[in-house]
């Protein structure tokens, strides 16, 4: 019962959020490439902090952090993209998103800005996108003269099936 209430609440929130946050994206950098995620998923952005390693889990989940008492797993997007790790510095950020029923932190090199990308400014990614990160891209958004790669959050978080890369892109 409470679960349903919660879900309904969430749905309502999302509904309202969708209205005001439509087409709004947060852009960030990883290895000098610019990426964007829909702002409706984002709870907050925090600086890098101490991450507690959890053994025997997927390599790109760096561990967990405690955000005001809430335990949040953090995903290092670099590792997820099969890029070599870099030292965390003062620019390194954790973007805390909520997706499905989980709050998850994304470690990114640098957070940039909030931008508006209209739907018609987003193109489908090329089917043969280069690199591992290709399968995590849901579209290519144009903002002025720059290009932001819009992340497919579900695939970023859950898709561990590297083999089906091409077929999935076709779908």
């Amino acid at each position: 019962m409470s679960v349903t209430d919660e879900k309904i609440e969430l749905m309502e929130e999302e509904y309202i959020a969708e209205d005001t946050q439509k087409d709004r994206y947060l852009s960030f950098k990883i290895a000098n490439e610019e990426y964007a995620i829909e702002i409706k998923h984002i709870i907050e952005i925090i600086g890098i902090q101490k991450i507690t390693k959890v053994p025997n889990i997927k390599n790109y989940i760096k561990g967990i952090i405690s955000l005001r008492g809430v335990i949040i797993p953090v995903v290092e997007v670099r590792t997820r993209f099969n890029l070599s790790p870099i030292e965390y510095d003062e620019r390194t950020c954790i973007i805390v998103i909520t997706y499905g029923n989980s709050d998850i932190g994304l470690i990114v090199d640098e957070v940039q800005e909030v931008v508006t990308i209209n739907e018609n400014q987003i193109e489908n990614p090329p089917i043969t996108s280069k690199g591992t990160q290709g399968r995590f891209i849901s579209g290519i958004g144009k903002v002025g003269s720059t290009v932001k790669l819009v992340l497919h959050i579900d695939k970023l978080l859950y898709d561990d099936n590297e083999m089906n890369e091409t077929t999935e892109e076709e779908n």
Binding site: V54, P55, N56, I61, S66, I71, P73, S102, I104
Partner: peptide, 24 residues
């Protein structure tokens, strides 16, 4: 742990330690 992490062998969960850190 978050459902995102799922079951971790040898560990049942985590806690916030006295210094605000995390213990498994």
């Amino acid at each position: 742990f978050s459902t995102y992490i799922g079951k971790v062998s040898g560990i049942t969960g985590c806690m916030v330690t006295g210094d605000g850190g995390i213990g498994l």
